[in-house]
């Protein structure tokens, strides 16, 4: 009898559940059509030839030395800009430590970071072309001072230019993702360190850095993923050539055959997804570890 009443209590909402579940349908259909399906199609096209037969031939393209070198450049670009962005961004977070969230400086930096991290890549490319393109005021000025920026050739539209422009959006993203972790440092820890005879140095060496290390690593991976998947900046700066993987996908999409292969875009997309999945898997593991200190 008691079990019957116990079962009856949750029965009422359960009866209404099918109707409520119907409410999930629009979102489910939407995500299926515009997220799941495109992803499967993108990755899937790499596995089929033009006549629709299953083939692994396109995947062999991922072993092509040219493609491998492109992936290498993409990884190098992402690792480098993420490292610079993470270190400088962390320095900004450190400098902001203790500034209350409602302080005008904090509001300003939060807003600026938001703008610059989200700012469209095309417009970013324009800004850098205006600033240090050929014939720019800055370049002429530096030349007058005896410093020729382009002594070694024009680098703005190649990898060094990409590094410079990418750092411009990596630092703000680091500020956004890392400052909550720094805000999680508890004053009590600093006090405990003091009462135990510690100094500022021992605080950072024994408490601050070890506690923040997982958050820093997680933010670094997020930055890596961010620049690995970035396209617009590179597309606008490097209008020709396919130095990095997203540009190679552009080349594969806009011309029928690259390297004499069909569906190369799909194979490259698959390669990108594999790298991104690996990075994000490590990211979520580290993030879980970082959350341990946020109680």
């Amino acid at each position: 009898m008691t079990t019957a009443t116990a079962a009856a209590a949750p029965a009422k909402p359960r009866r209404a559940k099918p109707l409520a579940a119907l409410g999930l349908a629009p979102f489910g259909v939407y995500v299926f059509l515009f997220l799941a399906l495109p992803t499967v199609l993108a990755v899937g096209t790499g596995l089929f030839d033009r006549s629709g037969n299953f083939t692994l031939a396109n995947l062999a393209a991922l072993g092509d030395p040219v493609i491998l070198a492109t992936f290498g450049k993409s990884v190098w670009l992402s690792a480098l800009t993420a490292a610079v962005g993470a270190l400088v961004g962390a320095a900004v977070c450190y400098a902001l430590l203790g500034v209350p969230a409602t302080h005008p400086v904090r509001t300003l930096i939060d807003a600026l970071s938001g703008v610059l991290a989200q700012f469209g890549g095309v417009m970013l490319a324009f800004m850098f072309m205006a600033t240090i393109g050929r014939g720019s005021f800055l370049v002429a000025w530096l030349k007058d001072l005896g410093f020729d920026v382009y002594a070694g050739g024009m680098w703005l539209y190649d990898m060094p230019g990409l590094v410079l422009a990418y750092i411009f959006f990596q630092i703000p993203l680091m500020v956004i993702t890392f400052s909550p972790a720094l805000g999680g440092l508890k004053p009590q820890w600093a006090e405990a360190n003091l009462t135990l005879g510690g100094t500022r140095r021992t605080f950072w060496a024994k408490i601050g850095v070890p506690v923040l290390a997982p958050s820093f690593a997680a933010s670094y991976l997020l930055l890596f993923a961010n620049s690995f998947s970035a396209y617009a900046t590179a597309a606008a700066l490097a209008s020709q050539g396919s130095q990095i993987v997203p540009l190679a996908i552009r080349a594969a999409l806009t011309s029928e055959t690259v390297l004499g292969r069909e569906n190369l875009a799909g194979a490259l997309a698959l390669g990108m997804i594999v790298v991104m999945a690996a990075v994000m898997a490590v990211y979520s593991r580290i993030q879980r570890r970082a959350d341990r200190w946020r109680l």
């Binding site: 515009f34 399906l37 495109p38 990755v43 096209t45 998947s229 999409l253 997309a269």
Partner: peptide, 16 residues
Amino acid sequence: PISIPAIVLVVGLAPI
């Protein structure tokens, strides 16, 4: 969607 680059999504969005 953070983990799926727009450039990858667009390969699959073209037929859709």
